[in-house]
Amino acid sequence: MKEMTYRDALRLGLQESMQSDPTIVILGEEVGRYGGAYGVTKGLLQEFGEDWVRDTPISEEILVGAAVGAAMTGLRPVAELMYVDFLTLAMDQLVNQAAKIRYMFGGQISVPMMLRSQGGTGRSAAAQHSQSLEAWVMHTPGLHLAMPADATDAYVLIKHALTLADPVVFLEHKGLYAQSFPFNPESAPPWGKAKISRSGNDCSIICYSRMVQRSLEAATQLAELGVQVDVVDLRTLHPLDMETVTKSVRKTGRALVVTEDCLTAGVSAELSARITEENFEYLEEPVLRMAGEDIPIPVSPALEAASVPTNESIKQSILKLMRKK
C-alpha cells in the first residue's frame, strides 16, 4: 500500500481543496514564504499566489477575526494558529464570534471557516507550546472539531471539513507530522464516524489523535499477554460518534478513555460520563480515564514524557482493568 506522511497528507488535502474551491484563502503566521512552522503549507504560495496564501503579522486575534469576517462574505478562509496554545489570544473570535454567529443571527449568516492548529507534547517545547486544548473547543456549541490520528484521516477529514457550512477547528498533532502511515482514503469512514482501528473482545480503548497510535502499540503488546483490545479512534470530537463507542463498550464491558489533554474537566471526563450513562448495565468495571497529568507541561524531556499517557502506562492500565495486576 502507498505510504504518506501526516504532513504531506494535510498538504495534499489543502491543495486539492484549493484547486476545486477558488474561495479558499489561507491566513496565518509564516504560512507563505516560510511554508508553515511545521511545513504543512510548503509550496502552496508558489502554486496559488500570495493573494490566496497570506502571511499575517503576529496578531492572532485579527487573523482569526478576519477569517470570520471573510467567511461571512463569500470566502472560505483557513486560519492557521502556529500552536494551539495561541488560541488564548484569539478566543473571543473563535468562541464569542465564529461559534455563535449563525445562532445569534437566527441562521441568516454562515461562517464556513477553518481554524487549523496543532498541539500536544513531544518536542520539549514547554508549557506554552505543548498543550492539548480540545476540551475548550468541545465545550463551545457551534464548532466542529476534527483530530486526525493518521495520514489517511488527515487527508479525508481536512477535505471534508473544507466543505462544511460551519466553523471547523482542525487540530493536528506535532508529534505526527513527520511520521509515515499507510495511505488509503477509500477505506476511511465518512465524516463524523469513528473507526475501529483494532478489534478485540476483552476491553475497549476510546481515543483520538496521537493517543490512537500509543493505544495500538499497547494493544499489540497486550495481545501477546492474551488480552484483546478494541481500539476506537473517534476522529472527530464534534460530531461525536457515540454509536460506535457504545457498540464497542457493550461488546467488551470494559472501557479505558485515553486522551493527552489534562484530566480534570477534560475530554476524557465527557467521554467517561457518556459511556457510563449510556451503558451502565453493560459495564463490568468503572470506566477508567488516562489523560495528561493536571500540571503545566514541563520542558524536561523526562518529565514531559511522563506527563501524558505512554504505550507502557496504557498497557499497565488495561492490565489493571482486566484485574491481571
Partner: peptide, 19 residues
Amino acid sequence: IVGGGIPHVVGAGLSYQLL
C-alpha cells in the same frame, strides 16, 4: 463584546478585494 465586530470588517474587506 466591545470591539468584537471590528475584525469582521477587515475580513469582509479581504473578501471584496479578492472577489
